[in-house]
Design a protein around this nucleic acid. Structure first.
Lengths: 341, 341
DNA sequence: ACAATTTACGAAAACGTTTTCGTGTAACAA
DNA sequence: TTGTTACACGAAAACGTTTTCGTAAATTGT
């Protein structure tokens, strides 16, 4: 069991003071070339690594950014993380990721862990349960203390914050307008419970497109999925309706893929009998047969932009006064599931 | 801009010493009930949060575990993380996740960041590029210094380490044996380059099953995908062969889904003309039409087990002598893509 | 040869905690 | 009363760094 090697032990071994060792390792010009080399050689030999805790504590800076996402498996979130990381790396920052599991308490716990010393700034997409509770205290106290914080995709409501999101209303609108242009007369929506803002907004866009086309939104065509129950069964309800819809807008990739599968099982032809469009352009949408039309969210750019804003706030704390709200545009990706005529 | 509140500022405000404040907050019985209450009340009021860096530095313990995965999007990895987190939470530990992006340098950088103070132990699944380079120095130096480290799924070769993996040879064997039992005579494999051990092992299982059934492995039926080039085109090569295979074993979910899609595009009926089986039981396999048979890996249990071993090592450093190697069993999940007759 | 400057290093404080040890006062026993 | 014990708190060291400041010795200038 090798004993831990610190500046102190090195200093003792080499007969220098701790400060000399530290300066030599930081390449200070207060130290002569010879001693630097001697120290460097020894340090290499014993494989010394500085203790990050001590360094950060002293420097009052960690050069790392925390990211909290609700879930990791989502293609979209992982794209955001990649974008954020890309930007951060170029600025010399590292990333520490953690997931809230869409739970309020875990989210609270992780933001406290990270913000009390581990990171210089935080990027977060808030948990579903947090929206349900409507309790954003763990964030507002950070904001009060001027801790650099930027939200992405899912931001708290009721408090003004820096955020980069997509225009979900517009995304929903574009999707449904596309369906209508392709001839749909009766379009259903598979969405989330109302308290999830992204789902609610996409639903608003859905209604807007319907009304604009002179179609009346019909509550019987709106299916709000409760993820605590089996999803498949809830989607099946749609197929049990007396008059089937001729198109469906699913607010995420998972619902879209499931709808597609169930439709085929029912003997329906997609897109001829039923058109399907999803949200998020991940691997799933490309790999189904027929492939799924969808609204692309550009997570990578969202991550980059969010990180850019965050680093600005870190560099220049005075920029904290005017919260920024950036919107990343979406766009339609047309594939086979809506390619009618 | 509220000034940062520390033990020192609290002490000054309340007229106590720093040590008294600290003890009160840690509920030491050296402090009278009255003063505790007074201090508690004040602390609540100003919203004091201890600095984790300082606490960890002093305690020489962080109560957090680092996890390094190659990628986040994979369903399998995120299941492992969930399992690990589940176990860790019960033991009072938190998780910090980071991804190597399958790059050697990023992997090295993150292990150094995490192990130099941030975490008490590390769980890692090694990056593809690390296998290519064959350079595991960043891990062996940790092992030399007795830092608690456990690998999962992808472990380094050439050095003995604690690890929990699946039996990839067996998994490949089971998959191919299933295809043969269903009547396949000419089974192709879509695998990774040879240096990726999981791919190589599944290929071994593939060959074993073939030989056992009296079929000769044919190099023309082995397709090693290079992910730096377009994957789709490489799979299409398989369909351009003079004599098509009647079954294919894809070593991961992505390749399987793509194969399925391309087969349908070629006008082939799956499973009648071509059977397909994948690896990893994620959302994709369930949502395709036809749904994909696959080998389930049980990532959640792998994560739990890996964490269990890691925490044991942390608690009892003497257990470091005999590295453990645990194997999580796999099993066949039969779905439509192989359901012939 | 002497002052002025530069060079090369060390002492000590600081970052924010925890913890060991010491100590003055109050309460108790004899 | 005096001696003992318990109580409630403070001083200071420690965790492993960085950084400011001070200062001998070496170098330079005249």
């Amino acid at each position: 069991m090798s004993v831990k090697v610190t500046l102190k032990t090195i200093a003792k071994q080499l007969g220098y003071s701790v400060s000399t060792i530290s300066k030599a390792l930081n390449n200070s010009d207060e130290i002569s070339l010879q001693t630097k080399q001697k120290i460097l050689a020894y340090v290499q030999d014993v494989g010394y690594q500085p203790n990050n805790l001590a360094v950060s504590l002293q420097r009052q800076r960690t050069m790392t950014i925390g990211v909290i996402v609700p879930e990791l498996v989502h293609h979209f979130f992982s794209r955001v993380i990649s974008g954020a990381e890309n930007f951060a790396t170029h600025a010399g920052f590292k990333l520490l990721i953690s997931m809230s599991n869409d739970e309020w308490d875990k989210e609270r716990q992780m933001t406290e862990l990270l913000t009390n010393g581990y990171v210089d700034g935080l990027l977060v997409s808030v948990a579903k349960q947090t929206f349900e509770k409507g309790n954003f205290d763990h964030f507002s106290s950070l904001i009060e203390h001027n801790f650099p914080l930027v939200f992405f995709d899912r931001a708290p409501y009721g408090i003004t914050v820096d955020k980069v999101t997509i225009n979900d209303i517009e995304g929903g609108y574009i999707a449904v307008k596309h369906l209508i242009e392709k001839g749909a007369k009766k379009v259903a929506i598979l969405t989330t419970p109302k308290h999830i803002s992204v789902g609610a907004d996409r639903e608003k866009g859905y209604k807007k497109a319907l009304i604009e086309a002179g179609l009346l939104p019909d509550e019987n065509l709106i299916f709000r999925i409760d993820e605590r129950a089996p999803i498949r069964e809830q989607i099946e309800l749609m197929f049990k309706q007396k008059a089937l819809p001729d198109a469906v807008f699913a607010v995420n990739e998972k619902y879209a893929a499931l709808t597609l599968k169930l439709a085929v099982q029912q003997g329906l032809n997609v897109p001829d009998d039923l058109m399907v469009i999803g949200f998020t352009d991940g691997f799933i949408s490309k790999s189904t047969t027929p492939s799924l039309s969808t609204i692309a969210q550009h997570g990578f750019e969202m991550g980059e932009k969010a990180m850019e804003i965050l680093l600005e706030k870190i560099e220049d704390k005075s920029a904290l006064n005017n919260p920024k709200s950036v919107i990343i545009p979406t766009n339609l990706v047309e594939r086979e599931s809506t390619k009618k005529v």
